[in-house]
Every structure is written in structure tokens, then in C-alpha cells.
Design a protein around this nucleic acid. Structure first.
Length: 567
RNA sequence: GCGCCUGUAGCUCAGGGGAUAGAGCACCUGCCUUCUAAGCAGGGAGUCGCAGGUUCGAUUCCUGCCAGGCGCGCCA
């Protein structure tokens, strides 16, 4: 990549720098107070008559200087140097906005960049040097994935892709809780089901997993092995059922995620970490620092020293002196950092928000700065069919698993719907709307724009259009319809959008961007016939259609939704 | 009781110290002899939960209150 900044980013930066210089000049001449300053932020105004770019910097200065925003704006303009820039005109508008009107040169440059970069258009270097480990889903390997897992999967995968596009190095990781007493219960549950399958009257253990999937698994096992497993010694038998169930369920979860188009770089086993004694090292490190104490037969961590609301038990008072959940998890996060990642992002469910301070306290206790750990909480999902709420009871075969959701609405609609809402807001997922194969379903609006463009190119081929495309072949100035200009501006904003959205951790804004892009294309399509009598105009418009398609495809790839050639 | 999330159009939700508060769906009116009408153009629809405060300016920030959801283990 030649440039780390997008064309639009360069233009914004250039204008902002000119404004900053104008402010300094005004301060030198005592037209503005010297003790005020502002970071000039260029934005794209909501209406075209408000220019190509705008800034509220004059108003911000006015506030500090206790001056009228419009007056400050006037002073800035007087000192503004716009030589050798694409700026044609600057207006003062409203309470003191500076509205910039530019010539088309920057747009032409931005468009040729899209053409040149193709599938990697949108890539920037803004986050270069960040090595991020993004941990998400991390569902317990004790049952099928559910709809909140599906939401976290959509958010995490999209965020990871966007961070990568903005220049960060990202690893997607799934933490497998394949140790601890939940897994013992899982094994015992399977054994009970196995015995039942063999005709024994055998009770399920306490707090057992009661899902049908264990019955099926047990039946298969009974058919394959008969009663031979019962002859194993106790320890060996328990271990068998446990690891068998874990293996099957993890395999199942991987399959579900694969159907969702998501592959993790690493499935990190808690057991493997425990086997190395890593959690004992954590205890030792904390003990040496005097951050632990014994009470009621248990070992406690002084997490309150690091902002937690109470101290936490690390080692229980039970006869085995077993570890609480936090201990291996701390060892795990320490391990992440030791693998060279300089930033950790965990996407957790709403039931874990009380856990965040504890974990952060632990990492601080181990000597890491608080900022290395960032936790995003993905909120609950409520499934709705039209007006009715779908009960999420684990029993009774209700529609609850991620597999069932995918079967019902498909991967594209599922991912799109999960990303439409901000991750921290409670989501009503309307299954009826998501499965509708019609214009009522918003996912098609975006896909349709992509398919329409593909259709134009098929038609062009059929008609035997001889055209040369590419920035050097076309007459860019022919693209001057308001709908064409609006479309190009949105395309030009893509790399900045990706970076801004990734930085804000708000993948839902990418959906909005895509809707805006599709809207701009559909408007262009209606107003401007692409395949017309004028070969130059046709070539120019085909070029624009191709750039739109590239941008749409790249955005769809970021959210993991397919970009159909026809619909 | 404490903590987190949420309260914006009929519904589901964006937005965010400033320029006429947006989208999708639903509703109404136009638009297919030409590249896919899963589309376009236009219209109706909102005291931005309530009350105070900060500000030249608050729907946005602060405080209190009301309502809904979720969580508060030597579970994971």
C-alpha cells in the first residue's frame, strides 16, 4: 500500500491544517485570544448545500473566547490560505459552521484509488502496530451454541475484520472451558444417559445437563459400544465420558460456527493451561506481592486494592483446594499477553459484566496496566415472531439454538440483523422479518444493489458494449449528476468509516453506511441510465458502477454476508 | 439494596453540545415499451420517559425520579 491515509483522510487533514494555521495567524495578530485552542475536526455535512466538508471549530473557539461563533468564523476565513488546494469556496453558515466547497479533483483521485485497490479498498494503516487478541463466543462446551452466542459471533467477527482492515493485527480466539466441575457434571450426565440407554434405571446427577443432545449422544454410544464402557474402572470411565462429551460438543460448535462463516484462529483449551500449572504461578506471583491472604480456609486476592468492590477467592476451602473460575482465567489472560499481544478485547455476555472489574483487578495485580484489557458486553437477544415473544426455555424443544436460528433465517439475515443494533442494546430479533424473502427484509436492500450492478455488467456484455474502463480511460468530468456525486462521496468515505467504526467498536454503524451506500446507488440507478447511446458516458457510468460494487462487496465481506451476483 | 444496559415516529431502532432529529417496516400518492419495481420520487406521522441543573445553545452533558431488561456465589 502506497498511502496509509485514505484520499478523503488526506483532504480532511490538509484542510484542518490550513484552518489551524489560520487560527495561529489570527492569534499572532491578536484577533483571537492566545490561550485558546481546538482540535479541528472535519466532517461531512448532512446536506449537499452545506458543502463537501464542514467544521464546527469556529464555534468551539467562540465558546472559549466568549465570542460569537460567526465572528470567529469570519476571522478564520480572513487568514485562511486555500492556494494549491481543491477548496473553491468557504461559507459561514448557521451559528458559525465553516462549509467548504471543493472541486472534483479529490473525488477523481479517491475513485481511482478504489479501482486500483479493488478487494482491499478500505484498508488503511491507522491501527498499525496494534496486536489485538479478540476473544469472543467462548461458550461453555456443555451444550449447543445459543442466539446470544450467535450475536457475539457476528459482532466479534465483524469487529475483527474491521480492525484488520484498519491496519491492526488481530487474532480471533475461542476460550474453551474444558476443565472444572461443569465438565465433570457434563461427563456424569452423559454417563447417566448412557446407562439409561442401556435400560438401567439410573438418575441424572444434580444440576445435570438435560438437553436432548446428550440422550442422542448416549444412544449412539450404547449402539456402538454396548455395555462395555461400564467395565472400565471408575476414574477411567468418568474421564472417558467427560472427554467424549467435550470432544463431540466442541466439534459441533465448530461446525455451527463454520456454517456461520466464522473460523477462529485459536481454540484455546483451559485444560491445557491448567495442565502446565499456570494458575499456580498466578497464585505465587500474587502471594509474593502480598496481594493474597487466607481466610475461612480459602485463599483470597486483595482485588479491592485495584478497584473491585470486594476481595475474591482464588482457592476454595474444599478438600481439593480447587481453583475458582477467576484463577485459570487470569492465567489465561496473562498467557495472552505473554504471546505478544499488546491489547486484549473480550466480548462477554450480559451475565458477565460483574466479572469485569475482578478480572481487570487481577491483571493489575499481576503488574499489567488497566488499559490492556477492554471488555465489550453484548446484550441479550429476545426472539420475536411478529408480535409474539418466543420463549427461550431450554426444555420443550423451543426454537433456541444457533443451529435452529440459522436453519430458520439463514446466515446472511442472521448476521445482518445482529449487526444492525448496537451491541450493548437489548435486541429484539424478529424471526418472521428475517426470514421474509421480500423487500421488507433490510438485508436484501444492500444485496440487491450488488446484484443489480452485476446485472448491468451481464447486460453490457450481452449487448456487446465495447468500453474501456479505468481511471485513465474514462472522462471523469462526465460524472456530474447530483446522484453520481453523492454516490462517489459515500464511496470515498469508506476507508475512514471502517477505521472510525472499528475504533469506536460499533459495527452497527457499518450497517448504516451500507444502507446509505445502497440508497445512493439505487438513486443513481433510477436517475442515470448506465448503458446508453453515448459510449463515453456509458464507460464513465460503468466505471462508477464497478467502484460501487467493489465497495459494497468489501463491506459485505466485513460483515460476513454474501454478495450475490443475482437475486 | 447495589451495579450494568435501555427509554427517540404506529413497530424495531440509529444518531448526538449546535444548521430543518434520521433509517427500515407499516400507512398514503405517483413512477415499469429501455440496465432486476427485492427499486425510485414524494407525503403524513415525534412535547427525543419525567423534573431540575450547566451552557449563547441540551434530545445529546450532570443530578434526581419513573419504567423495562440483566446481573450481584468459595458457579462458570
Amino acid at each position: 500500500m502506497q498511502n496509509s491515509l485514505s484520499v478523503l483522510g488526506q483532504v480532511k487533514k490538509d484542510i484542518a491544517a490550513r484552518i489551524t494555521r489560520a487560527i495561529s495567524k489570527a492569534q499572532d495578530r491578536d484577533e483571537l485570544p492566545k490561550d485558546i485552542n481546538v482540535e479541528v475536526k472535519m466532517e461531512i455535512p448532512p446536506r449537499p448545500e452545506q458543502g463537501d466538508f464542514a467544521t464546527g471549530a469556529a464555534m468551539a473557539l467562540g465558546r472559549q473566547a466568549k465570542m460569537d461563533g460567526r465572528t470567529v468564523a469570519g476571522i478564520i476565513i480572513r487568514h485562511l490560505d486555500i492556494d494549491d488546494s481543491p477548496v473553491l469556496r468557504v461559507d459561514i453558515a448557521g451559528p458559525g459552521f465553516l462549509n467548504f466547497f471543493l472541486d472534483g479533483s479529490w473525488l477523481e483521485k479517491a475513485m481511482s484509488r478504489v479501482w486500483a485497490e479493488g478487494p482491499s479498498y478500505g484498508r488503511t494503516d491507522y491501527l498499525k502496530g496494534q496486536k489485538i487478541l479478540l476473544e469472543f463466543v467462548s461458550a461453555n462446551p456443555t451444550g449447543p451454541l445459543n442466539v446470544v452466542n450467535a450475536r457475539a459471533a457476528a459482532v466479534g467477527d465483524c469487529l475483527a475484520s474491521m480492525l484488520e482492515m484498519a491496519g491492526a493485527e488481530v487474532s480471533r480466539e475461542f476460550y474453551v472451558n474444558d476443565a472444572g466441575n461443569q465438565t465433570d457434571i457434563l461427563g456424569a450426565s452423559l454417563e447417566a444417559r448412557y446407562r439409561q440407554a442401556l435400560g438401567q434405571d439410573y438418575p441424572l446427577p444434580e444440576n445435570s445437563y438435560r438437553g436432548e443432545y446428550l440422550k442422542d449422544m448416549a444412544a449412539a454410544l450404547a449402539a456402538e459400544k454396548g455395555s462395555s464402557l461400564l467395565e472400565l474402572p471408575d476414574g477411567e470411565r468418568h474421564e472417558f465420558f467427560k472427554s467424549y462429551a467435550l470432544g463431540k460438543i466442541i466439534e459441533w460448535q465448530k461446525k455451527t460456527l463454520k456454517d456461520y462463516g466464522l473460523t477462529f484462529d485459536t481454540w484455546f483449551s483451559e485444560k491445557s493451561l491448567r495442565d502446565t500449572g499456570a494458575h499456580n504461578q498466578v497464585v505465587e506471583l500474587l502471594r509474593v506481592k502480598g496481594l493474597t491472604y487466607e481466610k475461612d480456609g480459602a485463599l483470597w486476592f486483595r482485588s479491592t486494592q485495584f478497584g473491585d468492590d470486594k476481595d475474591r477467592v482464588l482457592v476454595k476451602s474444599d478438600p481439593n483446594a480447587s481453583a475458582t473460575y477467576i484463577l485459570p482465567d487470569l492465567a489465561y489472560h496473562k498467557n495472552k499477553l505473554e504471546r505478544g499481544f499488546n491489547h486484549l478485547i473480550d466480548i462477554l455476555g450480559p451475565d458477565h459484566h460483574g466479572y469485569v472489574n475482578r478480572l481487570a483487578a487481577g491483571l493489575m495485580g499481576l503488574g499489567y496496566p488497566r488499559e490492556v484489557l477492554e471488555v465489550l458486553i453484548v446484550q441479550v437477544v429476545r426472539l420475536v415472531k411478529g408480535k409474539e415473544v418466543v420463549k427461550m426455555s431450554k426444555r420443550g424443544g423451543e426454537f433456541i439454538t444457533m443451529d435452529e436460528l440459522l436453519e430458520e433465517v439463514g446466515k446472511d439475515a442472521a448476521r445482518f440483523f445482529f449487526l444492525m443494533r448496537s451491541p450493548e442494546s437489548h435486541l429484539d430479533f424478529d424471526i418472521d422479518l428475517a426470514r421474509l424473502q421480500s423487500n421488507e427484509n433490510p438485508v436484501f436492500y444492500v444485496q440487491y444493489a450488488h446484484a443489480r450492478i452485476a446485472s448491468i455488467f451481464r447486460q453490457a456484455k450481452d449487448d456487446g458494449f465495447k468500453f474501456a474502463m479505468g481511471p485513465n480511460e474514462i472522462n471523469f468530468s462526465l460524472l456530474r449528476d447530483p446522484s453520481e456525486l453523492a454516490l462517489m462521496k459515500i464511496i470515498a468515505a469508506f476507508p475512514e468509516e471502517v477505521y472510525e467504526i472499528a475504533k469506536a467498536r460499533e459495527p452497527n454503524r457499518l450497517i448504516k453506511y451500507m444502507m446509505d451506500l445502497a440508497t445512493a446507488f439505487h438513486a443513481f440507478y433510477s436517475r442515470c441510465r448506465v448503458l446508453g447511446d453515448d459510449p463515453d458516458l456509458t464507460a464513465a457510468r460503468l466505471y462508477l458502477a464497478k467502484l460501487t460494487q467493489i465497495t459494497l462487496a468489501n463491506a459485505l465481506r466485513l460483515i460476513g454476508v454474501s454478495a450475490p451476483e443475482s437475486m
